[in-house]
Design a protein around this nucleic acid. Sequence first.
DNA 1: ATTTTTTTGTGATATATGTCACATTTTTAT
DNA 2: ATAAAAATGTGACATATATCACAAAAAAAT
Lengths: 201, 201
Amino acid sequence: MLENNHAVVKFRKGDSIIKQGVFSTNVIFLRKGLAKIHITGPYREQIVRLIKAPTYLGLPTTLGNKINQYSVTAVLDSEVCFIDIDVFKRVLEENREFSSYIILELSKSELEAYRRCANRTQKQTRGKLADVLLDFSENIFNSDEFVLPVSQSDIGNWVDSGRESINRVLSEFAADGIIEMTGREVRIRDKKLLKMVSQNG
Amino acid sequence: MLENNHAVVKFRKGDSIIKQGVFSTNVIFLRKGLAKIHITGPYREQIVRLIKAPTYLGLPTTLGNKINQYSVTAVLDSEVCFIDIDVFKRVLEENREFSSYIILELSKSELEAYRRCANRTQKQTRGKLADVLLDFSENIFNSDEFVLPVSQSDIGNWVDSGRESINRVLSEFAADGIIEMTGREVRIRDKKLLKMVSQNG
DNA sequence: ATTTTTTTGTGATATATGTCACATTTTTAT
DNA sequence: ATAAAAATGTGACATATATCACAAAAAAAT
């Protein structure tokens, strides 16, 4: 049913997929690619998480309130399906397994949000940046070598540090032999040490 | 059905309702009272939110993973229903409205978590404390007069500031005539100003 | 190709807030 | 009632990191 009721759209990196404040009648399924979820804070736009395909986007928004509550922007070239909300809701009602799955996903997101919150508020820049690198390596790219998909400013914004601090710590990591960097290419050289930095300062 | 399959238990303030890391086979419904959700962070225990009745507790935990992923502690005397997970799941499957309701709740939580995150990382102590006071006044107690249900240390921990900073800013607010304080009793005197402080520094 | 915009690299400086220390008060337990 | 523990009030001080200010490099747009 969902197969028959969606349109596939491609987004280039940097393109806006969901815009906060805009009325929406679609659930969005991120089929391929990587995106950032960001929200308008009291002073600046803030990245709250990076999310990789496959996943649904904008569920909280769409199910609760037709106005998008946050923005989503492609960070890498991505492929997205637009699914009409009503169709989606019907499937949700008719398919128990599907609704269980969605409940599970939402539950996980909530837990993740709590954990992220505790991490981001307790650690300082070195630890937070280590987390980000480990996240890229272990969850997003599944490799010790990868190209940073976001700018240093974005990383700073995401983990609540200044762009400059991120830059400095990145150089520090390179100097300490934890990573190797060529432009935005990162190669993790000493994962053990990186994990230590993530845990301790 | 849920009516027939639950046990009501009373908790005194300070009592632990859910303990992180413990195996659990119950969904918990907070019937009356107020509780704090806290999670073990990298360095210390961190309060992630205050949650007031009526609400379900531990959904993300229970539905995803039988091990409690966070702790919940009563902040005021509370009344709680324990509902067997399997019963809960059956109701979830059989009652579409109920499952829609749960999905909606989870969605809201997620959004709230995002917003809180942006707020807490961008504002400084004055603004964050103003938020807390407004939250007590407008969401939790629905009154301009209330008794702080948590210690200053807890507030500090919750909004990611030191206990001492909270104390100082509280005195500052009192000196500025924004609030009046007698022990833990707070009376909001100038809500407009308080909102200004919440928005600006 | 050339220009414009966005990123990145790095130093100097300011500051909000954490941290320590200790006195006092309040609450809880015995 | 009394002792013990937790919470509060305040001063002094240290420090991680934000912020500003430029220069250089890279990427994007024309």
